[in-house]
Simulated assay, not measured.
Amino acid sequence: MSKDEYFVDLEALDTVGRKLNGVLRAMTETKGKSAHSTYLPEGALGKDFGEENELRQAHNTMKSFIEDEILKHLEDLVDDLAQKTSKTRGAYEDREYDAGNALNPGGN
């Protein structure tokens, strides 16, 4: 291959896309568990002491921050990367097809 030629491993781009989608699925499962498995009802930390309510509210505040700020931004980032990987793969595949047709214009 000369220095003016390029090679793109489309299978590698497919692999990256599959892995990113796997990360998205795992994040969705984790987000669901976080939303539904970490509920802290009144009295769960004890009763008749003033800090119980503060602890529950701090828990809910941190839980919301993790879900809305951290997980949401990570999910958006991974989704964006997955979409860009897919588009890039498609663009390279189109170029490969165009190059093949340019070399064999009659399809013979």
Rank of each mutant, 00 (worst) to 15 (best):
Y39C: 09
S86C: 01
K19D: 09
Y97E: 15
N21Q: 08
V8K: 00
N21M: 04
G107I: 03
Y39H: 12
K84T: 14
S86W: 00
R95Q: 12
D14T: 05
T30H: 08
T15E: 12
Q83I: 11
G107R: 01
V16W: 01
G50T: 02
G46C: 09
D80N: 14
K84G: 08
N108D: 15
E42I: 10
L40R: 03
L13I: 03
E69L: 14
E67N: 11
R95T: 08
K33E: 12
Y6Q: 14
G107D: 01
V23K: 04
H59F: 05
K19L: 11
P105F: 01
A82T: 00
R89Y: 04
Y97Q: 14
V8I: 11
G32F: 02
A102H: 09
L45R: 00
M62H: 07
N108G: 15
R25L: 15
S2T: 12
E69M: 15
K63E: 06
K47L: 12
I70N: 07
I66M: 08
N60C: 08
P41V: 00
S37R: 13
L74D: 08
E29H: 13
L55K: 07
A44K: 08
A82M: 01
T28Q: 06
A99I: 12
L20F: 03
S34Q: 10
A99G: 03
Y97P: 00
T88L: 10
R18K: 10
P41F: 04
P41Q: 05
S2P: 09
K31T: 12
D98Q: 11
E96P: 01
Q83K: 15
R89P: 01
V23W: 02
N21S: 08
A91C: 00
K47E: 11
I70T: 11
R18V: 10
N21T: 06
K63C: 02
R25F: 12
G50H: 02
E5A: 11
N101L: 15
A99R: 12
L74N: 13
E96H: 07
V23T: 14
G100S: 09
S86N: 07
S2D: 14
A91V: 06
A26H: 09
A35H: 06
L55S: 04
S2G: 15
A99P: 03
I66D: 02
K87N: 08
A99S: 13
L71W: 06
N21W: 01
T38Y: 13
D4E: 13
F65Q: 08
H73F: 08
E42D: 14
F65A: 12
Q57W: 03
V78Q: 01
H73M: 10
V8Y: 00
E93G: 11
A82L: 04
L10D: 02
A44P: 06
G106L: 13
A26S: 15
L20R: 00
N21F: 05
M1G: 11
R56S: 05
